[in-house]
Simulated scan of single mutants.
Amino acid sequence: MSCGAVSPDGALKRAAPGFADIDWSRPWFAQVAARGVRWQQAALRGAAQQLREMNADAGSAVITTGRGKRLTFIPQDELPPGTAYEAHIAATGCVPTRHNLHDFFNALTWFQFPRIKAALSARGSAAVDALGIGPTRGDTRDALTVFDENAVLFACSDPALSTALQAFSWKTLFVAQRAAWDERCEVRCFGHALLEKLVTPYKACTGHAWIVEVPSAYFTWTRAARDSFLDDTVARVLLEGAGFSSQMFAPLPVLGIPGWWADNETESFYDDASVFRSGRRSRVAPDGKIAASKVGQAVAASLVSAGEGEESPDSTGQGDG
């Protein structure tokens, strides 16, 4: 792990985590570990070597961005001044990339869920085309950024589990229904800022959950088949669904997921109300059902504001050029 340094006032300050700090045995990295280990070794040798390794994979994978351009990774300083990050990717296929963990995980996600990333690129660039670049990003671009940076995909075949997530019923979801995990629900980390934070995990680390309804048979499929289903389903909804906004996520403290953190084997782990919150507004409608919006047939989402999560609307560090 990175070493700490003593500041002038005597306080111990930890150095920012780097490529050498990634522990690929963590369950949240399992989905990208095979490629990630190889890229990590290249990144440790330098920025040019990292880009070379990424582009070698891009050249053989035939991944396209929002407007059908072949995916390529370029140095950050090749992004033209005044050009919107999303629009540049959609128009050219070139993803401006810095030599840091944030952009490292962003690139890995392009290979893990290429259709979702392309859909985000397409919608983001369309929003720029419609509204231009201004002092604020607008609701749609804010929501797209929250998804890109901090989303987790909550794949679920049991509506009762989705209801528990939306209702902040943490002990139902994580304790009473513990055996349901990997049999009726599971989580895939999508947001690259979330993956970056999980290099040095902490209890309050929270993702924005996008609920994906899956068939029961999903949990018998291979990991590759599951990922392909999620990629296709979510991308289709992102491109076709109306009313996409930051309100369409449910907060999910990811270290509460069974099997993801040793401390959560003890029920009292979930008694920490600063992490496992009761929610800011009631989720239960007069008929006793959870109040939720649903976009398309495959995705349900709770009525949660983006402010309840951890990422700001523009946490990419890329800005608008």
Rank of each mutant, 00 (worst) to 15 (best):
W221P: 08
T109G: 02
R236V: 10
G132W: 03
I211W: 04
N106L: 01
K294E: 07
A33H: 04
L71D: 07
E183S: 15
F113I: 06
F105C: 09
P81G: 02
F147L: 13
S25F: 04
K13V: 13
T316E: 03
T109C: 11
F249G: 00
Q166K: 13
T92N: 09
R141Q: 05
A151M: 03
D227F: 09
G66H: 11
F244I: 15
G256F: 04
F73I: 08
E265N: 14
W39H: 10
T222C: 05
P251W: 03
T206D: 03
I211Q: 00
L230T: 09
V212F: 06
C94N: 01
G307F: 00
H208V: 01
F190S: 05
R70E: 13
V254W: 02
V152W: 00
P253D: 01
G279K: 11
A42L: 05
V284F: 04
P8Q: 14
P17R: 13
L153T: 09
Q50Y: 15
H99R: 04
K294H: 09
A42H: 00
K171Y: 02
A48S: 13
D182T: 15
S228F: 03
F29Q: 07
L144C: 02
A15K: 14
D139K: 08
R178Q: 07
D21S: 12
R70I: 11
A11N: 14
A33S: 01
A42W: 03
L79A: 09
R223P: 14
K13M: 13
T92A: 09
R98A: 04
A33I: 00
N264S: 04
S245N: 14
P253Y: 02
C156I: 01
G4T: 10
C189H: 12
A84W: 11
D142F: 02
A84I: 06
R178V: 02
A90L: 05
D182Y: 14
D227N: 12
L51H: 08
